[in-house]
């Protein structure tokens, strides 16, 4: 749906330079030179992202090849693959990676499953007024601090907490602190970030299209599966990037409700914030970086990223 950059100038009327102001001339120049226009548009943001972000990431990866003097805490710039080898071969890192990816995937799936019906109700069933109220209701919890909400879940899931009180009549128990509690809490925290893009995606699906499908004999399920789902797939991916990556790097929630478990974020955090071993932390950070790149590559093949 993009417009070819080379086409527009011929279609645009060439404005006679009646008022020879600089702005005017600049404008004419720009409309004749789309490349210049493009570089003006992208110059600042690319400078920002490239300099601030990519350079920083590259520097971090290089640090992974250095070592640190354990007692003085100084980084010594001798090249070594020790950190990377340690991370790749250490059974600790493998276990923790599997655990973290498992948690992140479960959180993402749970969030999408919860978000789909709600987003559908908001976008296609609720009255405009109810729709507005629902969006507010979804957005509001975002403003209660992350930490406060995590501690609230700690209280909810504790022995004799509200969760137990709610489920005990049905013979249920609180899962206590551990991975299930971590998954529940993370799903809770990132849910609004998943609902919103899916809701926005559903809003863009025209009602007429769904009616046409019905008129052509499509049942509810086949319409959802064949018409709606393909259209909102990019939105689902967008939401999943939020929940997956936010879970992948989290170390605070698992500290608060995760019992004795640690995730990749904890390993990175203890190595940099606590053990002052930035090179090893950088090497560990490679794991989530690789996972995310693999994830992005996978969804790119579906074409979802282009429509993000």
């Amino acid at each position: 749906m993009t417009v070819d950059a080379s086409a527009p100038p011929t279609r645009r009327a060439v404005v006679p330079p009646q008022r020879g102001s600089i702005a005017r001339r600049g404008s004419v120049f720009l409309s004749r030179h789309p490349r210049v226009r493009l570089s003006l548009l992208l110059g600042a943001p690319l400078f920002w992202l490239g300099l601030v972000y990519i350079a920083a990431l590259a520097a971090l990866l290089i640090t992974a090849l250095w070592t640190v003097d354990s007692f003085t805490g100084q980084i010594s710039q001798t090249w070594t693959l020790d950190n990377i080898v340690a991370v790749l071969t250490g059974s600790l890192y493998q276990t923790v990676t599997l655990r973290t990816v498992g948690v992140a995937l479960l959180v993402t799936i749970i969030d999408i499953l919860i978000a789909l019906p709600i987003a559908f109700y908001m976008a296609k069933v609720a009255s405009p007024r109810a729709q507005r109220i629902l969006v507010i209701a979804i957005l509001m919890p975002l403003w209660a601090s992350y930490l406060v909400k995590a501690y609230a879940w700690r209280s909810v899931l504790s022995q004799g907490g509200i969760f137990e009180w709610l489920v005990s009549p049905f013979g249920g128990h609180s899962p206590g602190y551990g991975l299930p509690a971590t998954i529940i809490t993370l799903s809770y925290l990132w849910l609004p970030y998943v609902i919103l893009p899916i809701y926005a995606g559903l809003e863009r699906v025209p009602d007429s299209l769904m009616e046409a499908s019905a008129d052509l004999g499509g049942g509810t399920w086949s319409t959802l599966r064949l018409v709606v789902l393909p259209m909102i797939w990019p939105a689902i991916i967008a939401g999943s990037i939020f929940s997956f990556s936010l879970s992948l790097g989290d170390y605070i929630t698992v500290n608060i409700v995760g019992g004795a478990n640690q995730m990749l974020g904890n390993l990175v955090y203890t190595n940099v914030g606590a053990a002052n071993n930035l090179p090893l932390a950088a090497a560990i950070a490679l794991i989530p970086i690789l996972i995310i790149f693999a994830y992005l590559a996978a969804v790119r093949r579906t074409g979802a990223l282009n429509n993000l």
Binding site: L46, Y53, A282
Partner: peptide, 24 residues
Amino acid sequence: AISLLVILPIALPGIVTGIALNNA
């Protein structure tokens, strides 16, 4: 590549972004 670049800061876990920027 550019659209990937824009997504990257949010797609990479916060702790990676954090220590990378801190170091830089």
